[in-house]
């Protein structure tokens, strides 16, 4: 199934070129991180459809996943 994936800041170089990724049924954000070869320790926050649902939630078709390193500002 296909999901939408964006990677930001220092992780942007790992983003799929067209912004979409084919994943297996039952895959989680951790699987996506591994599939994109992002070092796990560099990932601080994962949003699924705009919510911080954790890295182990089962993803669904057309989900929107955002992957971030540690970020601050304000």
């Amino acid at each position: 199934m296909r999901i939408q994936v964006s990677c930001f800041a220092t992780l942007s170089r790992y983003a799929p070129t067209d912004g979409f990724l084919e994943i297996k049924e039952g895959a989680t954000p951790i699987d996506v991180i591994d599939q994109l070869s992002i070092p796990r320790e560099e990932v601080k926050i994962v949003f699924v459809n705009g919510q911080n649902s954790g890295k182990e939630i089962e993803l669904q078709e057309d989900d929107r996943v955002g992957i971030f390193p540690a970020i601050g500002g304000g």
Binding site: T10, F68, A70
Partner: peptide, 24 residues
């Protein structure tokens, strides 16, 4: 700390635009 040591120096505070947008 990754925010004060890396994130803020690299991109400034506008690093927040994408994450605040993603968070809706």
């Amino acid at each position: 700390h990754p925010v004060t040591g890396q994130g803020l120096p690299s991109y400034g505070t506008s690093i927040l635009i994408n994450i605040i947008n993603e968070a809706g």
